[in-house]
Amino acid sequence: MEMLKEILTPAIVFILLGVLMGVLLAVATKVFSVKVDERAEAIGSVLPGANCGGCGYAGCSALAEAIAKGEAKVSACTVGGAEVAAKVAEIMGVEAESAVKMRAQVMCSGTHDNALKKYVYEGADDCAAAARLGGGDKMCPVGCIGLGTCAAHCPFEAIVVDNGIAVVDPKKCAGCGVCVAHCPKGLIKLIPAEANAWVGCSCYDAGRLTRTYCDVGCIGCKLCVKVCEAGAITVDKHVAKIDYNKCTFCGKCAEKCPRKIIKL
């Protein structure tokens, strides 16, 4: 009898406790119900639900909300991969890749032949390491270091280093943006895949200074600004910039550029 009591008491207590909590939560669900973004809930149901935090958010529901709000990419779930990304994209009503297909472009043209160096670099074969030694071996403060850190990180093998600068193969580039994050000089930008004109320089030094160390540096002459009918080009800090929302891809700027840096 004593033993029976010893077994039954906890069983009954826990059944009661469980039922009590269950009822409490069931009631609370009804009483405290609020409307939420349907898409967030739908996305939450297709995500793996492991709450691993691999995406950088607190959990799957946090990521679902961020996707619904447009803060995160539909392919942000690293665990789910392409399969989950496709489902999420369907819910959000977009293509699995971003609506405008982008490609990476290295905004520098300074090869070994036309950009001067300030020292001979002999160190780890990595741009991040070289960037810490006075910002790299090129005289230009934003010149491509050309050790291929972007190429090493490119999941699509779309980048090769050619004669001291990294070159992106537009056919292979998927526009994922991994290289953008890995360039210590911040030289790689994502531009629309169909964009045919781009400025092959990011140097913010004044034109007079730029001329002294680089044959292909933007000197901020503003000829492109004047020739652009769409008003898409601005010169900010001695370097031209194309606004791809306005650019009509007419190519006149490329013809006019005296340094042949705006390329087609």
Partner: peptide
Amino acid sequence: ILVIASLVQFIEMFLKKY
């Protein structure tokens, strides 16, 4: 575990509403 889990769920719903 039972009490904490229920408590957290309850708090979550309460906060969501109020």
